[in-house]
Design a protein around this nucleic acid. Sequence first.
RNA 1: GGGCGGUUGGCUCAGUGGUAGAGCGCCUCGUUCACACCGAGGAGGUCGCUGGUUCAAAUCCAGUACUGCCCACCA
Length: 945
Amino acid sequence: MELSKAYEPTIIEDKWYADWLAKRRFAATPDDPNRSNPYCITIPPPNITGSLHMGHALNNTIIDALTRWHRMLGDNAMTLPGTDHAGIATQNVVEKQLAKQGISRHDLGREKFIEKCWEWRKEYGDRIYLQFHKLGCSYDWDRARFTMDESYVDAIYEQFLRWWERGLIYRGARVVNWCPRCQSAISDIEVNSEERQGKLYHLRYPFSPPAPNSGGDNGSPPAADHEGEGRGRGDGEEAPPKLGAGEPTHPELGAGNLDVLPQDWGPGGTYITIATTRPETMLGDTAVAVNPADKRYAGLVGRMIKLPLTDREIPLIADDYAKMEFGTGAVKVTPAHDLNDFEAGLRNKLPQIVVIGEDGRMTQAAGPEFAGLDRFEARKKALERMEELGLLVKVEDHVIQTPHCDRCGTIIEPLLSEQWFAEMKPLAAPAIDAVKDGRIRFVPDRYTRIYLDWMEKIQPWCISRQLWWGHRIPVWWAQDDRFTAARSLEDAAAKLGAPAESLRQDEDVLDTWFSSALWPHATLGWPRETVDLDFWYPTNLLSTAQEIIYLWVARMIMTGLDFMGEIPFREVYIHATVLDEKGARMSKSKGNGVDPLDMIEKYGADALRFYLLQNAGKNQDIKFRGDSVRLAGTFCNKLWNASRFVLSNLDENMTGEFDESRLTAMDRWILSRLAQTIETVNTNLATYDMDDGMAASYRFFWSDFCDWYIEMVKPRLRLEHEDSGDRDTARNVLAYVLEATLRLMHPMIPFITEEIWQAMPHKGETIMIAPYPTRENMGARPDPAAEAEIATIMEAIRGFRNLRSELKLDPARKLSGAAVGSDADCARALESSAQAITDLARLSSFEVRDDAPSDGGQWVGSPVTGGEVFLEIGEAMDITKELDRITKEWEATEKELAAIQARLGNPQFTGRAAAVVVEKTRAQAADLEQKREKLAERRKILGGQ
RNA sequence: GGGCGGUUGGCUCAGUGGUAGAGCGCCUCGUUCACACCGAGGAGGUCGCUGGUUCAAAUCCAGUACUGCCCACCA
């Protein structure tokens, strides 16, 4: 078998994926007699909304590399793929698609709309799987799951029912995050808080006159009037003068000045001034709160306030929630449109008035003047009206955190509504323990704290969504408004003791994350007791993005422990976020995303994988560089060409086996380097330091194997070496090292390694299940003696190359070289590799001699460890130039030596530093001294001082 | 406001106590039979800043600046 001259990734990648698929290489069975050790990953199921992005490519490259690694290690490795129905997201894209045809989902009706969603799923679900194929993912496609598969739906309802029966799921009217665009509630973690420049409005609310009987309250205001009492104007009658900047309103307010009563005195009564960023919600105010400790308002608590723009009266209450130092210390309370206000409302038994509806428009309760207005128009209008009434005191710039919908970016409206909730606290406790006691480990471990902090403050989970696409909540209502959760309509009828026809199922669907929360066990078959579940659960690894630690990871841990009584996975690897070249998040709206498929088409999946893994370690983000993918492609190209070279030197009967006793130093050296690389890569994969593993492989292959070993071995490959047997030794070592390297790198770059491996002497049908190189099965150990010997050779070769280059000698000119090994090891090393040195240093001849050439006019020299190399350049030499060169080097050596000697001369150093360090430093000094002597000698010969 | 990252040659990043490395880019040279997606050589950094610990700090400690991410109900 032969490799084509050019490396064409697309061709071999498609070819091999089809082959693997056809031969069912990815399919695993729990009862495989040769693979008893389970290794399982369930991949994060991508949303069916579109196509895979670079983050998916990164994560699935990591997952696949680890899967392949374990498979080759002999584990029964199974990675289970799947897709997520992604409730809101999918509904949004399908709606958008319909909108292009001028249709809304309401035109279609629920059933038809859901059909449309299924059509979408069919098309895009398949498209996503195809992308995984392109990437080379060796997932068990027979086990692929979709969160709306029948069996999966069973699991979801089982979960719901069990929690229901334990009283963990309940219905309640609470303020939830409402997205007026999606027309649904969303959970806290689906809300993104963004900082916006906004305004803080100070509004006056007039007190109602004290009831005649309740006189004598100690809250009566001082009789001061900053604004001209006696203008004789009734409440809200004629327009008051506009408030300007210099107006003596209450400039002392806001700074927490407790000595001043922050009330306004106006004609016809007193005012209390509140501060708000959302004036439109005032229509739903049911109280104003001040802090009980706030002296400014002491005695006023309990008085009624005439809520402007309405005909309602609301009380001034005391509640800790009002912070004295903020604004005026008085806060309006709108229980139906703010979570804190909601809670304050409950504490103080305040009415809840919904003034903004589900569509983001003001409701009837907002009054005839406002009803029907959009919430932002209503804000404008409320302000105008307040200003007209002279009740708008001032407007300040204020940075506010605005909640946005994670899916569509619309500003969230906190809204009082009836929703289904799941109580999380009892589920969180065991999930906290599992991480604390190390049963589950986060990598990098900094995420442990992030997880625990959230879990320890866990809140009830709003699990209902007002959508059509999703799992409908299994609750049925009787006509008398009794309800129950049940496995079926019949079941519900029995439970409620009402005829089935009279029942109606709850309209809401479950939060998407409610279904993904049981991914690991449900995909393996739960609630049925399957062999898969028994064999592969708990799974080994969950590799995912940082942003879904709460949304997904935490919840899987909770459900896994709750239903299986066992952790869902042992390790959680949080991979980096892929950013664009400038470091900005990739996003559709910014249009800065890079499509993995484009990269694959351009450079190959192996190149993309190689690049991504080079950057996958414990880092927080990756700045994606397309150019680096190209460079990763050049590595593959190098691998390809080096393999072609090796193959062209092999005979049919080459086995890659060799006789230990015939190995030369360079053979032992490359085997030693290989052994170390194998060790490093295995360790790095085990600790999720893929980046380090890639660097080690890269350096080994390109630098050690290609640049040095192959080049050094070339002379031995010449036919005239045939008889000695050394040629075959060299060829077999070449084959052996390359074959092992291919297996070593197969998990990361599966396609090219398979293609080359198949063309090599090898055992087995596919590299996919060939044994992964480990210290145990390779039996090779680092060989320090060979390493030292080859280091000397390399140094000599570099010495010659340097001399040539620094003296600007004609590179075409063949020159004679010589070396003096002042120590025996060095001499022997040089002697044994004379041929390689001659070749690599482009010498016409090379000899090892006992003494340095004395003719300074003919020879230039350069020290190496344990000796010195010389180049004979004859009359062409410019003595001055060479003297300069030597002098420069001598001076540098002097300087370095002086620094080291100073350190050694310091008794503090020799006394306190570790003995090894001192020893090392002494050796360093000795080497430098030797070098300096040689340089000095050369200078003398050349006639320098 | 809290937490967590990052800050090292032009770029992307390694480097957790012994005096700075890689790849790319750049400069010089090279078309001999694996590869110009190549080979050889070279230039280039007082490791954000300040202070401390230490015989010795890119590395440990404290502070500070800038940058990014996550979390958070101050109206």
